[in-house]
């Protein structure tokens, strides 16, 4: 990345790769297996997953930008602390804004917004990328990784909400499951799968995504 010149176009091939790589062959969740904790916790509903993804997206882009701007000033002995400070402040901002404008979702996400601070993806990108790169590529890197994380979150949430509660974003898909007034699939004897609501199912679905991805691209399989 050190060969950058002032005249480099904003969306050069290299910069585009910063966004597309984490979405596919270098996905932070399925390839690097980072940020799994939150992926398990808040993927019961698509709504929650979307808000969580946007929160992480905001924190990682802003965090990357700020750390990248300060990268030549940050004393190396306290760089991790400085990164933590920046991330923690951004997370508090997100938490406060959610509490003020999306109170219901905020209470559902509860501690998990606060736990964005400990999301390895964010600290990983700050330390590995933003500390060594210019602001613009850092923003793109944050965008790519945030989207990569969000994409997996939302895919898992779609499966879990659809088969666990029979809804998508709260909208009933399979009909009305209430006893006595069943309609749609429920009238034919269909039942929601409670297993889907439980955390282990998120792990299994993530595992299946990893399996599918690696069987399509054999180069991703690690050799031991």
């Amino acid at each position: 990345m050190s060969s950058e010149k002032g005249s480099e176009p904003l969306f050069s091939k290299k910069n585009k790769k910063l966004i597309t790589d984490p979405l596919t062959d270098n996905n932070p969740v399925t390839i690097q297996v980072l940020g799994i904790c939150s992926a398990l916790a808040i993927t019961v509903q698509v709504n929650q997953a979307i808000v969580m993804s946007l929160s992480v997206l905001f924190v990682i882009i802003m965090g990357n930008l700020i750390v990248s701007l300060l990268r030549n000033l940050i004393p190396s002995r306290i760089r991790i602390i400085v990164q933590l400070l920046v991330v923690a402040s951004l997370v508090i901002i997100v938490d406060q804004v959610l509490a003020a404008f999306l109170p219901d979702l905020s209470s559902k996400l509860s501690v998990f917004v606060g736990l964005i601070i400990t999301n390895c993806i964010i600290m990983g990108r700050l330390e590995a990328f933003a500390m060594a790169n210019k602001p613009w590529p850092s923003i793109l890197d944050g965008l790519g990784n945030g989207l990569g994380y969000g994409a997996i979150l939302i895919i898992v949430a779609v499966f879990r909400e659809l088969f666990g509660s029979g809804t998508l974003m709260g909208i009933p898909i399979f009909g009305n499951p209430l006893p006595g007034e069943e309609s749609g699939l429920y009238a034919m004897g269909y039942q929601n799968n409670n297993m889907m609501i439980l955390p282990p199912m998120a792990l299994i679905i993530t595992g299946i995504i990893i399996w599918v991805q690696r069987s399509r691209n054999k180069a991703l399989i690690e050799e031991h």
Binding site: L73, I74, P75, I78, I81, V82, L85, V86, S89, I92, I93, Q96, V97, A99, A100
Partner: peptide
Amino acid sequence: FAIGLVVILGVILAVLSEGL
């Protein structure tokens, strides 16, 4: 650097919290 950063971030968060 540490003190300056903490003060700046503290002020930003305090203002935000009061504003919301």
